[in-house]
Nucleic acid binder design. Structure first.
Lengths: 93, 93
DNA sequence: AAAATAGTTCAAATGTTTTTGAACTATTTA
DNA sequence: TAAATAGTTCAAAAACATTTGAACTATTTT
């Protein structure tokens, strides 16, 4: 602990502070099967380009993990990141 | 549950997604005594104007509670907000 | 081999947040 | 009563985030 610059923490909260990304996270949380970017985009009406942008941000924050298989990119939530930076945030600051 | 618009949730995450505000929160968490905006501002080197802006955002998000006494404004953390929107976020989406 | 599909990248346009300084209100101290 | 202190408000400037469409790569289907 003894946080001086908080950069990772800010990256996480920024990534969570957007309705498109919150919708993506919600969708992933409620879906057991492995899901592609395209499926999420179609389900939530997000354009390809905008989807690409948001998935990249989520990935850079460590919120999702991605796996590329041929043409498609599969995404899944990284629950450890939530544990560390969200669920335990208040306790740890 | 069964979130459709997430507006409060986004307000909270936006409020948390800034280094000045995270520093303020950290300062308040580690201080038992009641603290004024001015004390925080001095301790963290935030200008009056910028402090005023950030305290207002934190208040609007429900992250701090304020009490005005004569010239000064005392601020304290609202742990219930963290419980509801941060600590239990992942569980509840 | 051509067409379709999945996703990325780029730059421009648009939108939102943050910082700044000056002017302000209200209260307290000299 | 004048000066000092605590904080707010405003508008402009600066900084940052998001959306868009077009052009692109790579893979799969026809």
């Amino acid at each position: 602990m003894m946080n001086t610059k908080n950069t990772d923490q800010i990256t996480i909260f920024k990534a969570l502070a957007d309705s498109v990304r919150l919708d993506i996270i919600e969708y992933l949380k409620h879906n057991d099967h492995e899901v592609s970017c395209g499926e999420v985009g179609k389900a939530l009406n997000i354009s390809k380009t905008s989807g690409s942008y948001h998935f990249k941000l989520l990935q850079e924050a460590g919120i999702i993990t991605t796996r590329k298989e041929a043409r498609e990119k599969y995404v899944s939530l990284n629950s450890k990141t939530f544990d560390k930076y969200v669920t335990n945030f208040y306790k740890n600051i």
